[in-house]
Computed example of a mutant assay.
Amino acid sequence: MRLFRSDELLGIARETLDFVLEASEETHPNEYMGFLRADDARKLDLDRDGKVITDVLVIPGTESSPTSASVRSHMKPNDMRSVGSVHSHPNGALRPSDADLATFGQGEVHIIVGAPYGWGDWKAFDNEGNQTTLDVLDVEVPDEHFFDFTQEDIDRELADRDDGGFLSWFR
């Protein structure tokens, strides 16, 4: 057994990319945004060292419009599995804007998905905004790692809560 495993990012699980494409389409005409998380490839029965993107973390309170998405950065957990971000461009442009580049500092990879949100409508970028390759891998994502909810579900849950201010969210 090796004490240290490779931190190389091997790719994204097909199921996770499916989720990203569907969530981006459902959020249209507004931008979709989330954070990418990865698991050790060996835990996914890959005979390679490295990491595979398996999760998308959607932060409560994310606000989006047709031209931007913003996250309350204090709500983002300090997560050792975090490897980057994903967001959509409803206008279909598959290149980072200046605003995107300003947020790319954290993480190894940043995915931009463009309308109409098909399999060819996404690109991956490094933290300096250079296009990079990200393989789509056929691995089985454990159920507890895959979030099966949408921004609409989150908004509905928040609307159902009493209006007791920010701290009421923690009750």
Rank of each mutant, 00 (worst) to 15 (best):
M33R: 15
N78A: 12
R156Q: 07
R5L: 10
P29C: 13
N30W: 04
D126C: 09
V86A: 02
D148C: 03
F170P: 09
S65K: 09
G11P: 03
G118A: 04
L167P: 06
R42E: 03
A13D: 01
E108I: 12
M1T: 07
R95S: 15
H89I: 09
L137N: 02
F35Y: 13
M80R: 14
T16Y: 00
G165C: 08
H110E: 02
D39L: 12
V56D: 09
I154W: 05
V141C: 00
G165E: 05
P116N: 12
I112N: 02
W119K: 15
S97L: 12
E31C: 11
F147C: 02
L9A: 09
L101F: 03
D40R: 10
L94K: 06
D18R: 10
E26P: 03
E15R: 11
A115D: 14
E108D: 09
F35I: 09
S68L: 13
D163C: 14
M80P: 15
E26Y: 08
L134V: 13
S24H: 00
D7W: 00
V113P: 02
L17C: 03
L101Q: 08
P60T: 04
L44F: 01
A41T: 02
D162Y: 13
E144G: 14
R161S: 05
P142K: 11
R48I: 00
Q106K: 15
V139H: 01
G114F: 05
S64R: 11
I111W: 04
A115I: 10
P96W: 08
F166W: 14
L57G: 02
D100H: 05
P66W: 05
T62V: 07
P96G: 07
V139Y: 03
R37H: 09
L101H: 04
M80C: 03
S97T: 15
I111H: 01
L44E: 05
R14Y: 03
R161T: 06
A115E: 06
T133L: 04
N127H: 10
V71D: 11
L10W: 06
W122F: 12
M80G: 11
N78I: 10
L9I: 10
Y32N: 03
T27P: 05
D18K: 14
L134H: 00
D79M: 14
D153T: 08
G50P: 07
S6V: 00
L94C: 07
T16E: 01
D135W: 02
S6T: 08
V83S: 02
E152Q: 11
S70L: 13
M75W: 13
M80K: 15
L57M: 11
N30S: 15
T67E: 08
D18E: 09
L36D: 02
R161P: 10
A69V: 13
D49Y: 07
T150P: 05
F125R: 06
H89C: 04
R2G: 04
P66S: 11
T54P: 00
V86E: 01
